[in-house]
């Protein structure tokens, strides 16, 4: 499989250097690590929001570093967790004295390495809290995790926590809105094609030309069902109904939605999906406060889409609408 890479072993390192040289005024790489932080980190007087995880999900995670979102992010190898010492350096570099909130996607390696780092940081006197995001309604206990997987809803957790921290709120308040987001967000994805990792160079899983996988994970982990190709409207209905069933919200509820591309999906198709999504939400008498469409959390070159719905109240609406200035997401 053709790839625009040099050596698979160098992909993450070279990507990170490419990101910092693209955004020298925003991003800084900690020496001898795969950790990127705000250029001006640590920001005094503000709770820091940090995250991290395997690479291959760009613009997740470092793309969301900046005003109103993340203070820093650790990048692991492709689809593998950063190590605990990298998380430890991330926490130390971002701690501006008001405490640090770690946003962790629910994968075993991410959780264990982050928890180890948090305990070590606390021994050094840091105040650290964490939230674990598990928004994927598709499956429990899959290839990399027990419980539900953390996927695209994580972006909304970054947004809410980052916006709250920017108001000068204390760590417990920032953690509260992050947890509130986790409690109210649900996601489900699907794949038209497998991703191809730089290391392996061939599809992670076999999917026939006339097949799709519903409930796919962002590392190509198996989903709920493999079916014949369906129309965009049918796929959208399948994903949307699963997500809404999980959220169990009443008519009249306001929501924020994300139609997320998996990396290899034309924007044209994402908008086709969004059109149907909004129509279905109307059928359910849900009021859409905001609809995001784009590549937010990808799976390398996988073609496919995920749909995220988050039930919002006035507080979450205000946080999602608040200004953010990051390489991958700007809200004015």
């Amino acid at each position: 499989m053709k790839k625009l890479i040099n050596d698979p072993d160098d992909v993450v390192d070279e990507m990170l250097d490419g990101m910092t040289t693209a955004h020298p005024d925003r991003l800084r790489r900690l020496p001898d690590t795969q950790v990127l932080v705000r250029e001006d980190a640590p920001v005094d007087g503000k709770v820091a929001i940090v995250t991290g995880g395997g690479s291959g999900h760009e613009p997740t995670h470092a793309g969301y570093i900046g005003d109103g979102m993340l203070d820093g992010a650790a990048a692991g190898g492709v689809f593998s967790s950063p190590t605990a010492d990298e998380f430890e350096e991330l926490i130390a570099a971002c701690d501006g004295g008001e405490g640090v909130l770690c946003v962790i996607k629910n994968y075993e390696g991410d959780v264990m390495n982050f928890e180890t780092a948090i305990e070590l940081a606390e021994m050094e006197g840091a105040t650290v809290e964490s939230v674990v995001v598990d928004d994927d309604v598709a499956v429990e206990d899959s290839l990399y995790t027990s419980g539900r997987r953390g996927v695209c809803g994580t972006i909304l957790v970054h947004k809410a926590a980052g916006a709250k921290a920017a108001t000068g709120a204390d760590l417990s308040e920032v953690k509260r809105v992050a947890e509130k987001t986790v409690d109210n967000v649900a996601t489900m994805g699907m794949a038209l094609t497998s991703c191809v990792t730089p290391e392996k160079g061939e599809p992670t899983f076999d999917l026939g030309d006339d097949e799709i996988e519903l409930g796919i994970g962002i590392h190509g982990e198996p989903g709920t069902e493999r079916t014949d190709v369906m129309s965009a409207d049918d796929v959208t209905a399948e994903l949307t109904e699963s997500v809404l069933a999980d959220l169990d919200i009443d008519a009249g509820q306001e929501v924020v939605t994300i139609v997320n591309g998996m990396g290899g999906t034309p924007q044209m198709e994402l908008f086709v999906v969004n059109r149907k999504l909004q129509e279905l939400l109307g059928d359910h008498e849900l009021a859409v406060h905001d609809a995001w469409v784009g590549d937010y959390m990808t799976s390398l070159d996988m073609a496919g889409v995920s749909i995220t719905v988050c039930a919002v109240d006035d507080e979450l609406k205000e946080l999602f609408d608040a200004t953010a200035d990051t390489p991958a997401l700007g809200v004015q």
Binding site: G76, S80, T83, A84, G109, M112, N113, T116, L120
Partner: peptide, 22 residues
């Protein structure tokens, strides 16, 4: 412990290495 934590990776890094640090 610290070396195992940073070099072994995955879940084994924190389990074998992190535990040794503490």
């Amino acid at each position: 412990g610290k070396t195992l934590m940073s070099e072994v990776g995955g879940a084994s890094g924190p389990l074998f290495g992190g535990s040794l640090v503490f």
